[in-house]
């Protein structure tokens, strides 16, 4: 959503890029030969794992976008509690008023990974964009450098601070 804080610069961006896969768009399968992907969020379940591998295979520049993608961040706060089984047991069985059970419908509800992983723990990452979320000026700085085609250099507190 911080991406949308680019506000009217989105018009400028639209002149240079084609949006091929996004939460904002209706294309449902990740296409081949993608130039740049901004990957938000950590890898927490089997579906995430499948998608991130596919994204890596089909993308030239993969950007870990935001602290969850870079470090696991809040998504990984469940890791110190150990395997997800007992957590699910507490929340969905003990703390339900009706029909307490762990959601596990096959083919529908993906299995949780034992640990939540940052993106680079699963596939190689080309660029890290920290921030929770990365503020729009930082996103813009990175995208402008990518569009210009050279090495991307982000330096200084405004560009590489967590949180």
């Amino acid at each position: 959503m911080s991406f949308l804080d680019l506000d009217e610069w989105l018009f400028e961006l639209a002149r240079h890029v084609e949006l091929v896969y996004s939460p904002l768009a209706d294309i449902k399968a990740y296409p081949e030969h993608v130039d740049v992907a901004l990957v938000e969020g950590a890898v927490a379940n089997a579906d995430n794992l499948h998608l991130i591998r596919q994204v890596r295979e089909r993308t030239r520049t993969l950007i870990a976008f935001g602290d969850c993608a870079v470090t696991g961040n809040v998504t990984a706060l469940r890791n110190p509690l150990g395997a997800p089984g007992p957590i699910l047991q507490t929340l969905y069985v003990e703390r339900a008023d009706m029909s307490g059970q762990i959601p596990d419908a096959p083919g529908i509800v993906p299995a949780l990974l034992g640990r939540v992983l940052p993106v680079h723990a699963v596939v190689p990452v080309d660029l890290y964009l920290p921030g929770c979320p990365p503020p729009a000026p930082r996103i813009r700085a990175a995208l402008e450098q990518i569009l210009a085609g050279g090495e991307v250099l982000l330096a200084g507190r405004e560009m590489i601070k967590f949180g």
């Binding site: 998504t75 699910l88 509800v109 949780l112």
Partner: peptide, 12 residues
């Protein structure tokens, strides 16, 4: 309508 993500805020 299936929601397929889980975070566990209430627990951690």
């Amino acid at each position: 309508f299936h929601v397929t993500e889980f975070r566990g805020f209430e627990r951690f």
